[in-house]
């Protein structure tokens, strides 16, 4: 929890809209805190970014 709050603070400090990573466990953990604190920052897996096309910009 102490590590998680430091990570969330660092993410918010960057002003980014999306936090991308290649590890699903990390994404679930960090994403959980981002959504519970209603930060508006989304998490995405690297594969989701790769799967994005102009036709489907938000592949899920």
């Amino acid at each position: 929890m102490a590590m998680l709050s430091d990570k969330v603070r660092a993410i918010l400090d960057t002003g980014a809209e999306v936090c991308a990573a290649a590890d699903n466990s990390c994404l679930m953990h960090i994403g959980g805190a981002l959504s519970r604190q209603r930060t508006g920052v989304r998490t995405m897996h690297l594969a989701e970014i790769l799967a994005c096309t102009e036709a489907r910009p938000r592949a899920r």
Binding site: M28, H29, G31, G32, R60
Partner: peptide, 24 residues
């Protein structure tokens, strides 16, 4: 809304901090 925020029973502890994506 596209996420699972709470799991039932003994899994609740794990989901207290984590969000799980539903099976698409």
């Amino acid at each position: 809304h596209g996420t699972i925020e709470r799991l039932p029973g003994p899994l609740a502890g794990w989901s207290a901090m984590r969000d799980l994506r539903p099976v698409p």
